[in-house]
Amino acid sequence: MKKLINSVDTVVADALAGMAAAHPDALRVDLDKHIVYRARAKEQGRVAIVSGGGSGHEPLHGGFVGPGMLDAACAGEIFTSPVPDQIIAATTAVDRGAGVLHLVKNYTGDVMNFEMAAEIAAGSGIEVATVVTNDDVAVEDSLYTAGRRGVGVTVLAEKIAGAAAEQGRPLAEVAEIATRVNANGRSMGMALTSCTVPANGKPSFDLPDDEMEIGIGIHGEPGRHREKIAPASEIAGRLVEPILAELPAGDGHGVIAFLNGMGASPLIELYVMYHEVAELLAARGVGIERRLVGNYITSLDMAGCSLTLLRADDEMLRLWDAPVNTPGLRWGA
């Protein structure tokens, strides 16, 4: 194992210290509790949004803290849920009197710990709404979940709900928009290699050089099936077809197409994949309204990609286009 780290025991703390040093004007990082906050809090009377999860998926979630997206992100250890104390501290700190939305990926530990934190926060007078993302069509249940995993739609929900909160919309409306994004988005991923968790020191699963894994999870979980490596045009089909089979009907609306790198695939390969995806969608009569290509929800050093398609109505597109200014996503600001 070759990693740019000091120690396997301090990876998360050292990385958070690096975020604080790299973005001193944008972020405030609680290095004791492992929470990333905006440097400047929202004004009173605005809904705040808190998300979080295991580290190793950067820039998710801390890289999406800032105007137009999250108010705070709780960083667990690598591939491990943040604990309730972190989530309570973040929720209390960012509440501006209009309530707090928790955006949670559907992994058992995340759901349980955010649920506990929401109950405690409610007991102290903070109104909390929770939306759980579960967009991965590759599985119904896995080692980490009951039901489908929450993956790429999480980024889109953080952006779209974040824009709604920035506009001053009430908590129920912000939560409804996030729920609608989740209901209309589907994802699937693939891997050319496994990832290596520093504490383990070896790949999470063995994958021969001439094979690929279809339907992987972001915690290094093996996928639906394994097959021989194929050209990008064929790999794109392995992702597009299962997603389209479960994507809600369009009613005249196109999609936001999000081609995400898993951490180790260079951008040149992601653009090759995106071109193939765009060709397949055009052939199926699916219009692409907006596009996002790059590393946004990763799995350490895994080579591969995921595809998320969101059937986006006019309101979602307006909120997607709204200004955002975070370390990991920025436009119009």
Score class of each variant (00 low, 15 high):
2 K>A: 14
6 N>T: 14
7 S>D: 15
8 V>C: 09
9 D>V: 04
11 V>I: 15
17 A>L: 10
24 P>K: 13
29 V>E: 10
31 L>F: 12
33 K>C: 03
35 I>T: 00
36 V>L: 03
48 A>H: 07
49 I>E: 10
54 G>H: 07
58 E>H: 05
64 F>V: 02
66 G>Q: 02
70 L>N: 02
71 D>T: 04
74 C>A: 13
76 G>D: 08
77 E>P: 00
80 T>E: 10
80 T>V: 13
85 D>L: 12
85 D>E: 14
86 Q>T: 12
89 A>M: 09
90 A>C: 07
93 A>S: 06
97 G>N: 09
99 G>D: 00
99 G>H: 01
99 G>A: 01
99 G>E: 00
105 K>C: 10
109 G>M: 06
112 M>C: 02
114 F>M: 04
117 A>I: 00
121 A>T: 11
124 S>R: 14
125 G>V: 05
127 E>Y: 01
128 V>C: 06
134 N>A: 12
137 V>E: 02
137 V>M: 04
150 G>S: 08
152 G>M: 06
153 V>Y: 03
153 V>E: 08
154 T>S: 13
172 A>T: 01
173 E>P: 00
173 E>Q: 04
173 E>R: 02
180 R>S: 12
183 A>G: 06
184 N>H: 13
184 N>S: 14
184 N>V: 04
188 M>G: 10
200 N>R: 15
202 K>N: 03
204 S>K: 13
207 L>V: 11
210 D>G: 13
213 E>K: 08
214 I>V: 15
214 I>L: 13
214 I>E: 08
220 G>T: 03
221 E>T: 00
225 H>I: 06
226 R>W: 02
227 E>D: 01
228 K>D: 04
229 I>G: 04
232 A>D: 07
237 G>R: 15
240 V>R: 14
241 E>K: 13
243 I>N: 05
248 P>Y: 14
251 D>Q: 09
252 G>P: 00
252 G>L: 00
255 V>E: 02
256 I>K: 03
257 A>L: 10
258 F>H: 15
259 L>D: 06
264 A>Q: 11
273 M>S: 05
275 H>A: 07
280 L>M: 12
283 A>D: 15
285 G>M: 09
286 V>E: 15
288 I>W: 08
290 R>G: 11
293 V>S: 06
294 G>Y: 08
299 S>G: 06
305 C>H: 01
305 C>M: 03
308 T>A: 03
309 L>P: 04
309 L>M: 08
310 L>V: 05
310 L>P: 03
311 R>L: 04
319 L>H: 06
321 D>E: 13
325 N>T: 10
325 N>F: 10
327 P>Q: 07
328 G>N: 05
328 G>K: 05
329 L>Q: 05
329 L>A: 05
330 R>Y: 09
333 A>Y: 07
